[in-house]
Design a protein around this nucleic acid. Structure first.
Lengths: 334, 334
DNA sequence: CTGAAAGCGCTTACAG
DNA sequence: CTGAAAGCGCTTACAG
């Protein structure tokens, strides 16, 4: 059986392919009588337009690329789920679909071939940008509209949506300092991510504004994985005696840290206070429940998606950004 | 500046577009000298082939559609993360990309328009199938290769990958019965999912093989959300006095159930034993740690992706399935 | 209100 | 080893 195309429908009805196209898209008024016959033929022939052909002819794909973290991180981090839910809810509503890419840059070459083999997209959403981000570079080179989820290195010429992470970490550290903590370990994320920088800045500002000193030795960078949080923290505390508090990059690392503390017989919160960021489900479930910075993850995803659609559809041209307020949720761990 | 197409490159080099195409794809031997000049022109012009045009001409998209749960569920369930990670790892390696669809059937009409507006795909992965699944119907109608993650209703004519959930629940209930529990509540998922059926079957078989009776009142269906698990469980225990164990559809529901038990001052495990399925990160972190059935989620995702690629590339034609063994991981809750 | 035709940018069978 | 040309299945500017 031959493939049913727009031509098949046109011939059956006795009109041109153009008329069928217009009737279906509604871009031109076609008489009711003809429209009805077309619709009926579509039904009878079970005609399904080729989206590929449509994409090519109209130069529009209704598809957005979502550049996410490595799958290893996705497996452990609920933060991704929330962002994703926000993104999907908005995009589906606006009739866009999403192409999901996990990041494999770490394991393979920086000139990852996938970047060029990529499916055609109308726009891109880039999560958790790096300093000197090759994905952003790549997208920019191709002049594809994009919105960064997080804060990009060059803030002036990108659209982005982020929580006010620096203010958030300022609040966390301030909160701990007011409670009398003086030696606070920051289990930060990898240096390559701009988010790590922002967290460190908040940390430093809080110390400075309280006229207190911190040491660079108290700040360590660690991949965002539970096991790494656990492993690196055990090593760190050997070199940093008498610490009384730990702030982590995210909930996942916090879980690793809390496990290390338990094994080290350092009671939380009586001996050590722990504060994380993300406020994902884990923080409520963990025992002790973890004090965590809520960064409005779902909202970030949703706003980024909305912004991207606006950019794609040219309702916004000039780079802008949206900063979501954070909120510290106190629980048992501090 | 005009768009750089294969024609631009061809003209610059002084060959035909066909030659450029062949040189780039390697589908025909082109002399080294010409190839070099083409590669150089590609570089100089920063030529990027239009994937849309390629898709149309070659009738191949290198794209797979992943039909996932509603975003509401995605937000709470790590099981999705693990499946997704397995799927992405394999698919990326095989050079396929993934189009992600969340399910909105619940909220909108069953003839969801998105099903037809969908981007062109070479194959589909359908998670958590329903009884009488419209997605499967839709994909089948379009004759698109697909693999079900989970077990479809019509087992004979679909490819699918699933854990041996029935054996798993048989093992769980058997384990609880051997421990002396007699009245075991099954907080099952919604009836529309085939997974709920499989769980119930395992539950019933264990009772039968132990020559014991269960009551239909002990089996309740609940949407796979923490809050629902909490809410419905509180209602259920009013009608089922003296129960001593609870088995849940997944970890998310278990969290809700455990919260309800805590509020009801029913100590776990001394008064009530709880066993879930999924063995996601949550089960280790929760206090008490949750006994859970490991269903090899990452493996399921990876195998399903592998199978799908085989089907797409016609290395497999006849419907087959793969059943992953489950494993009960004992923790504090039982 | 509708049609004929060009165009989107590739791939690939046909021919030499 | 390479080219000319048809074809993939749509959309849309041009024309009437």
């Amino acid at each position: 059986m031959k493939k049913v195309t727009i031509e098949t429908v046109a011939q059956k009805v006795g009109v041109s392919a153009a008329t069928v196209s217009y009737a279906l898209s509604g871009k031109r008024k076609i008489s009711q009588e003809v429209t009805d016959r077309i619709l009926q033929a579509v039904e009878e022939l079970d005609y399904r337009p080729s989206i590929t052909a449509r994409n090519l002819a109209s130069n529009k794909t209704w598809t957005v690329g979502l550049y996410a973290s490595p799958t290893q991180n996705i497996r452990e981090d609920y933060f991704f789920n929330n962002i994703l839910a926000g993104v999907l809810d908005v995009l589906h509503e606006r009739k866009y679909q999403v192409h999901l890419y996990a990041d494999y840059l770490n394991e393979k070459s920086r000139n990852h071939p996938d970047l060029n083999l990529t499916q055609p997209i109308d726009g891109a959403l880039i999560m958790n940008p790096r300093i000197n981000d090759v994905y952003i570079d790549h997208i920019r080179q191709r002049s594809i509209p994009y919105v960064v989820i997080g804060t990009p290195e060059e803030r002036d010429d990108s659209f982005y949506v982020d929580a006010d992470v620096t203010a958030g970490y300022y609040a966390i550290v301030n909160y701990l300092l007011k409670k009398g903590h003086r030696k606070i370990i920051l289990m930060n994320g990898s240096v390559e991510y701009t988010q790590s920088e922002k967290r460190k800045t908040g940390y430093m500002m809080a110390y400075r504004d309280n006229a207190l000193q911190y040491s660079e030795h108290w700040i360590v960078n660690v991949p965002m994985l539970e096991e790494e949080g656990y492993r690196v923290f055990l090593k760190t505390i050997k070199n940093v005696p008498d610490f009384t508090a730990v702030v982590t990059f995210n909930d996942t690392i916090a879980v690793g840290v809390l496990r290390a503390l338990k094994e080290s017989n350092l009671h939380v919160p009586s001996k050590v206070a722990v504060v994380s960021a993300g406020n994902t489900m884990i923080t409520r479930i963990h025992s002790p429940a973890i004090t965590s910075l809520d960064m409005g993850s779902y909202e970030i995803g949703a706003k980024a998606a909305e912004l991207l659609v606006d950019v794609i559809e040219k309702r916004r041209i000039q780079p802008s950004h949206e900063i979501i307020q954070t909120r510290l949720v106190e629980r048992e761990s501090s």
